[in-house]
């Protein structure tokens, strides 16, 4: 869907992004990961031309993004940022309605769309639509910011660290809510973050930037378990155990399951083989001691086990597989 071809951004002597090439597929969540100053935000802003590349070309659906006016391009792309940037003199409704208005939607359509989005983000319109941004909490403001990014139903949404400024508890709430909603939206997301856990949890693919260069690009599993160099490895070292729990699928663990006592296939929680151990451990019924069954893509039950046995299998695999 998006082709970034040898794109560079130079500020005077400093090279913010050095000959970056990557492509983003439709309906995936593509993460630009890196420390501050690594070039990830510059890379994102080149996609909606808030930053113009010094050289290289970017295509969306095959057309160079420079083919039409920048404003027109931006109206077709959702955009949410860390500091939210709600317009303080607008109500919540007016804030969400900005892009539809710019696109000339009629009033009734805008109204219905805003109501729908506010409802989705847990901000009942009758209570919040006429509030001013300053009357909202930080989490509520960012929800409005995200609703605003989705308002005109753009196929592509750029997210510049939208969760980073929130406190940890609110952050998890807003993240989950957003990606649960996003899953059903048939949209492409490009997410900039410095938070490794966020990248691994929500990204379909991750592109790791350092000093303006792409160090590695691939699935979370590839970056966590098959780092191309020491930098990538060390980048994912903090909280490695949790990251691995997230990227290792149940299908991979099946061979390492000990011959456990046979369990009845009744009264178990069923997971797909592509689920991660992290998904399993977070499930409330598993946490309460219930066993689980793993159903393969072909519909066969691969295993029935308790969480403890899966953890044993995880450690057994870790001793022999790469990245362990």
């Amino acid at each position: 869907m998006i082709e970034v071809d040898r794109v560079e951004k130079r500020y005077g002597d400093r090279l913010a992004v050095e000959s970056a090439s990557f492509s983003i597929r439709q309906r995936e969540t593509f993460v630009l990961l890196g420390r501050s100053g690594s070039g990830k935000t510059t890379a994102l802003k080149m996609l909606n031309r808030l930053v113009e590349p010094t050289s290289g070309i970017i295509r969306i659906f095959g057309d160079p993004i420079t083919a039409r006016p920048a404003e027109e391009l931006r109206r077709s792309i959702g955009y949410a940022i860390q500091d939210v940037g709600l317009f303080p003199h607008y109500t919540v409704r007016e804030n969400v309605a900005v892009v539809p208005k710019l696109l000339g939607w009629d009033e009734r359509r805008i109204r219905a769309r805003v109501d729908e989005l506010l409802e989705h983000f847990g901000l009942p319109p009758d209570r919040y639509a006429n509030a001013r941004p300053r009357e909202l909490s930080g989490g509520q403001q960012q929800r409005v910011g995200l609703a605003r990014a989705l308002a005109a139903d753009p196929p592509l949404v750029l997210l510049d660290e939208p969760f980073s400024a929130l406190d940890p508890i609110t952050r998890r709430e807003v993240q989950r809510e957003f990606f649960r909603l996003a899953e059903n939206l048939d949209k492409t997301f490009v997410l900039v973050t410095h938070d490794v856990a966020e990248a691994v949890a929500f990204g379909d693919r991750i592109c790791l930037f350092e000093a303006g260069r792409i160090e590695q690009m691939g699935t979370p599993r590839e970056l966590v378990l098959e780092p191309r160099n020491d930098f990538v490895r060390s980048f994912f070292d903090t909280g490695r155990l949790e990251l691995e729990l997230r990227v290792v699928s149940l299908a991979e663990l099946a061979p390492y399951l000990a011959r456990a006592p046979r369990l009845e296939a009744t009264d178990v929680v069923e997971f797909s083989a592509t689920a991660s151990l992290h998904d399993v451990l977070e499930h409330p019924l598993i946490a309460a001691g219930r066993a689980l069954s793993v159903r393969g893509e072909d519909g066969r039950i691969l295993a029935i086990a308790r969480a403890a046995a899966l953890l044993d299998a995880f450690y057994a695999r870790r001793r022999v597989e790469p990245g362990g």
Partner: peptide, 27 residues
């Protein structure tokens, strides 16, 4: 005008004149 507000306005696809008239001037 806070830079985040200006950036958001530009990122939404407002023209420079719209950013000025709808956001910066009222603020």
């Amino acid at each position: 005008t806070p830079s985040a507000v200006k950036e958001a306005a530009a990122g939404m696809g407002m023209t420079d004149l719209q950013v000025l008239g709808r956001v910066e001037l009222p603020l």
